[in-house]
Design a protein around this nucleic acid. Sequence first.
DNA 1: AGTTGTGTTGAAGA
DNA 2: ATCTTCAACACAAC
Length: 287
Amino acid sequence: MPELPEVQTVVNDLNKKIKGDVVTGFSTVFEKAIKGSSLAEFKKKIIGRKILGARRMGKNIFIDLSEGKTLYLHLKMTGHLLVKPKTIEKEDYFSDRVNQYIRHSWALQDKKGRIKNLEFSDMRKFGKIILTDTEKIDQLPEISGLGIDAMDEKFDLKKFQEILARRKNTPIGLILMDQALIAGIGNIYRSEILFEAGVSPERKVSFLNEEEIKKIFSWIKKTLTKAIKLRGTSDSDYRDTSGAPGGFQKVLKVYRRAGKKCKKCATMITRMKMGQRSVFSCSGCQK
DNA sequence: AGTTGTGTTGAAGA
DNA sequence: ATCTTCAACACAAC
């Protein structure tokens, strides 16, 4: 699932691969993903614009275009972006078995005249696309309610303590996932962060001591940094822009390891539901 | 073969 | 208000 490290990997790839290219076309087989404008309007406004660069806020992707427009994308659960060199687009392209989940495709042309495709593969069709004014991205409802980005330099221990002070009665496992408080952490990394910090996801904020808060904070940064370095977790659907998996799934300590032995203390990893989602933890390592 | 689990997020219900 | 549940959707695994 694309969380902060996966989205960062995609953004880095896009900046290497398609910055400076011009959008020459767009086609979709799932029009519903495009919000806020009709397909015709979307196409008209996007074609001819140059890609200035890509960036992200939490799990949200922005591709800035020339003349003040920005393409907003959210990969949700199963979305991933692929960049492919392409000469001719076959008619049956979308129905090719290997590409069965490609819902949207942007035709691009680089400075040397080479044609490329930027493709949005999205099995579950939860992904979202919005074309907006660059200066108005903060006004998107998807962005305006977002908490501070977990990898933002301004997200420091003090800021973390301030966030916690506002939600004393909430289990820490829910805090880490709440995009309105801290943006970027999802289900995989909340379990991993709390395992490393040695704190049970169920522990309420008011019962965390100073030492534990410091540990959790530092493992947020450490875990995400390591995951970015390993190009994200490809537990199931996530792939990078070349279609290749990341590497963090090889070093997961608790996520999706219920019933298996803890790598640190050999206690059985357990799974519970928290906020409708599975949290994994080790009762031996996490108190 | 029907049911359940999968996870992101906004919306609806309590 | 804040919490919980559901719906969007496809598919694998029971």
